[in-house]
Simulated scan of single mutants.
Amino acid sequence: MPRRALRHEVLLVLAVSLGASAVGALISFSGVLTRPGGLGEQTATLNASRAPDRPWLDLAWQLFGIATDLAPVLLVAHLLLRERAAGGYGGGGLRLLGFDARRPRSDLARGAVVAAGIGGSGLLLYLGAHAAGASLTVVPESLPDVWWKFPVLIASALENAVLEEVVVLGYLLRRLSQLGWTPTGALLASALLRGSYHLYQGLGGFFGNAVMGVIFVWLYRRWGRVMPLVVAHALIDIVAFVGYALLADHVDWLPTG
């Protein structure tokens, strides 16, 4: 594809996905900074109820949000299939990024190890940033206590993992390489974008996720597969969402807003 067409494609994909989220997070962070009180006194809720007194309507909204957030992943799959077809090859799609089930044991094992390392250090970083006043109080969920609460939290974690790692890791690095970016430049772009759409959590969320982005890019290039990082991200978010729901009312070390 011509370089100009590739640039336009990347900008459009980001505009309907995490690029737009980064702009929204920046606007949200600006509003927080100009609001009375420190960052630690304000709250960012991740999985909020849309209709607290109407559980079936709330469930419909939750599932609708998860499904529509995955639309950019389908767009990327379509674009990669077209790229493969234009090159005269069959197959392709998300398999070009290593998003498939060809190596389940290896992907699960690697993902679990990465999740354990990054999840634990990320929690310590968040607690430290919150204590220092550099992070908002992040409330991973505020869903009602209904039968679908935990399945929705798990589905939300899976959606986050697939969207972020397919778009910001696999797709973006592939396209920036095709555009002639240096490996270092592409790494910084991916990591800074990841940090930017977490700015709504404060500076701690920005820097913590940017560092995570650097590690994920390095591992992706080493393994050549995005799936282990999808597994790692999903496990981190599942533990955060479900763990918060189970522990928030029973421990005093976890900020709850």
Rank of each mutant, 00 (worst) to 15 (best):
G111E: 04
A112Q: 05
V113R: 12
V114Y: 13
V114P: 08
A115M: 13
A116Q: 07
G117D: 07
G117N: 11
I118V: 14
I118P: 04
G120R: 12
G122F: 04
L123W: 10
L123D: 10
L123S: 11
L124D: 07
L124S: 07
L124T: 10
L124K: 09
L124G: 06
L125A: 14
Y126T: 01
G128S: 13
A129N: 04
H130M: 06
G133P: 03
G133M: 07
A134W: 15
A134S: 11
A134K: 06
S135R: 10
S135L: 08
S135A: 15
L136Q: 14
L136A: 15
V138H: 10
V139M: 05
P140V: 01
P140C: 04
E141L: 00
P144Y: 03
W148P: 00
F150R: 10
F150L: 10
V152L: 04
V152I: 13
L153S: 01
I154D: 00
S156E: 05
A157Q: 07
L158E: 05
L158N: 02
E159F: 11
N160A: 15
N160F: 13
V162N: 01
V162M: 05
L163R: 06
L163G: 03
L163P: 01
L163C: 02
E165V: 01
V166D: 03
V168T: 09
L169A: 00
G170C: 05
G170N: 03
Y171W: 14
Y171V: 06
R174H: 11
R174T: 02
R174L: 13
R175I: 02
Q178W: 12
Q178S: 14
W181T: 05
P183C: 07
T184G: 11
A186W: 11
A186D: 11
L188F: 15
A189P: 06
S190E: 09
S190H: 09
S190R: 10
S190V: 03
A191V: 11
L192V: 15
L192G: 08
L193Y: 04
R194T: 08
R194F: 15
S196C: 15
H198D: 10
H198E: 13
L199G: 06
L199T: 06
G202C: 08
G202P: 00
L203S: 10
G204Q: 03
G204V: 07
F206P: 09
F206L: 15
F207H: 03
G208E: 03
G208F: 08
G208H: 04
V211K: 01
M212R: 04
M212I: 07
G213F: 09
I215L: 14
I215D: 09
V217K: 02
W218Q: 09
L219M: 14
L219W: 13
L219S: 08
